[in-house]
Computed example of a mutant assay.
Amino acid sequence: MEAKEEDVRLGANKFPERQPIGTAAQGTDDKDYKDSPPAPIFEPGELKSWSFYRAGIAEFVATFLFLYISILTVMGVSKSSSKCATVGIQGIAWSFGGMIFALVYCTAGISGGHINPAVTFGLFLARKLSLTRALFYIIMQCLGAICGAGVVKGFQQGLYMTNGGGANMVAAGYTKGDGLGAEIVGTFILVYTVFSATDAKRSARDSHVPILAPLPIGFAVFLVHLATIPITGTGINPARSLGAAVIFNRAEAWDDHWIFWVGPFIGAALAAIYHQVIIRAIPFKSKS
């Protein structure tokens, strides 16, 4: 009986009941973790800070390296007459996931290691960064992606142009709705993993999971690629899709390009809402 009472006092039932919805996880002072205060919507003072520009440069370089390695891997698989002679789809998925793991690990302490406009958008909705910083990150991510794909094309232009340039397209046999759905769900998985892996509450007694945050993020990217490469080539990152489309620059790369912005942004928004409102129960109603 004593053990049962202890279980009630800990875990998800640690907080008193009969509180307004949305206040349970945040409405007490005895938390053993601390959330960062919400970022302001506009913070013009950031524009005078070197750390702001350093973070943007880190996002540019990380996205550049991400496209460089991942698109080169795609080209290596595409040029082979036999998929068995290359790393195949599994290798492509590992390339994307492994680079995200490495790059998030390297840049998390500088910029947060977003490397993806959808991740930046989701974190902005959760008030983890200002609109000023979010827009700057997205611009730098897109520029980095374009440069990364451009370097790959410079190495092997003929191969690049004859094998699709790594551009995202909805595969034959699938509808635009299929592609949009795959991008929404895939990005939801990624952004939800980002929120969970970086949640301050992981250090609390009732939910502590000692794990390196970039690992589940990279693994989520790997798994989503395994599932959706046959459908859309897997975008779940508007900068990655834009970089390849700009450098490849053929009609087929632009026909369905909107899917690789709309889908990831919807998926990121749903993940932010789910994590903040359902999982974390962030307050939206004051206690009386």
Score class of each variant (00 low, 15 high):
V277K: 13
A55F: 00
L135K: 12
I211C: 04
I247T: 11
R18C: 12
A197K: 03
P230W: 01
P210R: 10
N249C: 05
F284G: 07
V224A: 07
A108I: 09
V194S: 04
G181M: 07
F121P: 15
A24R: 15
I231N: 11
G181P: 00
E2P: 04
S196I: 08
L226P: 09
K285P: 00
A220I: 02
I115E: 06
A25H: 15
F155M: 00
I266S: 06
L103F: 02
G76W: 12
F60A: 03
S203A: 04
A39P: 10
F60G: 02
P216E: 05
P37C: 04
K4Q: 06
D199W: 10
T187C: 12
V104H: 01
I217M: 02
V61M: 11
A126E: 02
S288N: 12
G98F: 09
I236W: 12
G11D: 12
G11M: 01
E252R: 07
P214S: 11
K48R: 10
I189T: 14
A25P: 07
M140I: 05
K176N: 14
Y105C: 07
Y137P: 04
A93P: 04
R133E: 05
G177H: 04
S286K: 12
D35F: 14
N163W: 13
A213E: 10
G267A: 03
G97Y: 00
N13R: 12
I139H: 10
W261C: 12
P117N: 05
L131T: 11
R9L: 04
Y192M: 10
T234H: 09
A167G: 03
